[in-house]
Design a binder for these strands. Structure first.
Lengths: 237, 237
DNA sequence: CGTCAGCTTGATTACTTTCAATTGTTGTGG
DNA sequence: CCACAACAATTGAAAGTAATCAAGCTGACG
């Protein structure tokens, strides 16, 4: 953890996101947050919080990519959503004063701030704009979760895999403007997004490759024809 | 619509729920709500709001049962959650200023109040307790949606059907303390909860009946052994 | 250079859907 | 009140999809 090498801005000068939940918060309150934050580093694969653990604060991602998953009774993982630079984590559990219900894992090396629960709640109560932002965050999460539910319940594997790739592209974009999706995932993780098995994922990716829609290069996935991929995913919106 | 026969209390004297979101709201604000509400009646099967329609208010269920569903691209329905007396509907769309994204349908004759959007937002902004209640409502919805997602993604049909029955029992209880689940659903609707087909649902219900866990009497479902049903659903919590 | 984790492929099996046909139930208009 | 239409439930057979099981491969890394 070579903190000396990393430039860390105070919350008051945060530029990681132009539309984050804290963007509308006053300088004064950001200053309070600043005093109450702790800096954490996680290596790829490390767990940021576990399912069932008690909530001790709000996580704010300064850099890196994180997956939120949920384990079924049989231990199989389902990825619920992703979080990246500028996103916050753990608000659902914090706000309903619950334990974490979806473990978060670093998909690459991450730098995360932990904001004190008390301080956050304090600001939340005095800042209607922030509270509205949180409500919208929850609403959007709910909307996505319900959409994912429908997709997993009703779509075929190739549709779900295609949709997963579209989602990844939308979320993480391309590597310097090219066609390679800007995130490193194992086949097994892609399976955990689409709600299927590793083997089926591999076969399906190969099929999409053969169809000329994507191009598999090592572990990287290139999207050759996003429109066709969207068609394959049966996304109409 | 024989309104004359139905006794309608003002919001200030509402007793439909002891833990509803409005329970903590002041008399004064309830009075405001009261002035701004409209009374609507829906027959069984009627749609209260459609997917894609613009949000014009908040629905509060005075009596009756409602299902919120979502349609897949192929037109197949997935039931997302239920609402009954004392629950509110449409808050997600209203709060994120979105169109309705999950249509609501009356499962039996319903009496529903429509609260004005403006009036509600007004009170919401002045009442931190209410806004906290809403946040918790959203949090809980999100939690359930994610749980349902895992279940549909990972459980077998018999587990999902079993779980659906447990959910129905928890939500609607028994008919006068007996063993009959207090809600009327078609096989097709049960299928839409569990994310399967009507035929498979029928076969599965028959199997549970043969196992002595439930007893099918006409369209009513009796739960003979709730513990075994929970086991069959692989619910551990 | 061995090991381990991830990737790939093939064969088999199990589960669920789909299609088709029949019966039962309900509500409605004559 | 009955006949009919529309919807709901049921059952069987066939087809399809994806999971599972087994085995070999590949590449990164100590």
């Amino acid at each position: 953890m070579k903190r000396g090498k990393i430039e860390i801005k105070p919350c008051t000068e945060c530029t990681v996101s132009s539309n984050g939940v804290f963007c509308s918060v006053s300088e004064k309150n950001l200053g309070i947050l600043d005093q109450a934050r702790g800096s954490n580093f996680y290596k790829k694969g490390q767990t940021i919080f576990y399912e069932g653990n008690h909530t001790n604060g709000l996580f704010c991602i300064y850099s890196g990519k994180v997956k939120l998953s949920k384990l079924g009774e049989n231990g199989k993982e389902q990825i619920i959503r992703f979080a990246k630079t500028g996103n916050i984590l753990g608000y659902r559990s914090l706000l309903s004063n619950d334990t974490y219900h979806a473990p978060a894992t670093a998909m690459e090396d991450c730098h995360v701030f932990l904001l004190s629960k008390d301080r956050f709640m304090e600001i939340l109560e005095s800042d209607p704009k922030l509270s509205m932002n949180i409500v919208q965050l929850l609403s959007n999460d709910l909307k996505s979760a319900e959409q994912l539910l429908i997709d997993i319940a009703q779509k075929s594997v190739i549709e779900r895999i295609s949709e997963s790739l579209v989602l990844l592209q939308k979320t993480f974009g391309y590597v310097n403007g090219g066609k390679t999706i800007n995130v490193a995932l194992t086949r097994s993780e892609i399976a955990d997004i689409a709600g299927t098995t590793t083997e089926t994922t591999i076969r399906t990716l190969v099929q999409l490759d053969k169809e000329g829609i994507i191009k598999l290069v090592d572990k990287k996935i290139n999207i050759l024809d996003l429109q066709k991929l969207i068609q394959r995913a049966k996304i109409y919106d």
